[in-house]
Amino acid sequence: MTRTLDRPAASPLFRPISTGRRLRNRLATALVTAAFLLAVVPLLWVLYTVLRFGVKVVTSSAWWTHSLSGLLSFQAGGGVYHAIYGTLTQALVCAVFSIPIGLMVGIYLVEYGARSRLEKITTFMVDILTGVPSIVAALFVYALWITILGFPRSGFAVSLALVLLMVPVIVRTTEEMLRIVPNDLREASYALGVPKWKTIVKIVIPTALSGIVTGIMLALARVMGETAPLLVLVGYAPFINYNLFEGNMAALPLVMVSERNNPTPAGVDRMWGAALTLVLLITLFNLLATVVARRSAIKAK
């Protein structure tokens, strides 16, 4: 007892958490959890619905190997390989144009722009292009490619509209990824007597590659689900059309749109089947992106 008297009465160094803080913590935790559920529930619901109606359709082998050619609207069966072909080729052609253009614009902006007038104008244009709705891009291609230049409506016209949508996304990703490459690496390379272009190709781009690849794959996935350009620029065909430059051509979103007007059970099945197929394709691309990104990622150990 006497010992405690020796010491002056000092408040303890550490105090228990106050009730107010505890309450605020509870409240914030509850809010964050609620927000999370609010975001996740619809997502799972969508997935569940698509799976519930779609699984039985896409598990038939004819789905992947046949088209809807010759089937009457109430007849069950058939498949969508014609639409998968359409979606994939249109996306591929779009990628072939967009990736080099987007990459090069991104590289210009970061490595060569140096706050010039042209850089500012380009950035501004890319910003505007990012905000252009897909239907407007489609109408623009319609006006230019079909009305003025006189080409027919075709899968290729769709690809052109998709290019307009994809290029700004790739420019943005490339730009952001290149900007986070430390300047030290560029200087280290210059100091070894490596010319600037080689520094960009061999040092800067490989360092940023995994991010760029992820961005491109995500952009591609996005573009594959675009519907407006399809509605405006190509007619739907229930049969396969290998010619990207002429004639009606199916794509998965178009199958959904056209089968939605078909009130028979067969139509409903096809619609959900096409929806699930599109989700699967996009998931596949995202997985591919992850794999590629992992393989090209910077290894520390």
């Binding site: 280290a188 100091a191 040092i203 360092t207």
Partner: peptide
């Protein structure tokens, strides 16, 4: 030239 901060190429 050798820099103040080591900067090996990460890739």
């Amino acid at each position: 030239m050798v820099f103040q901060r080591p900067n090996p190429f990460p890739t």
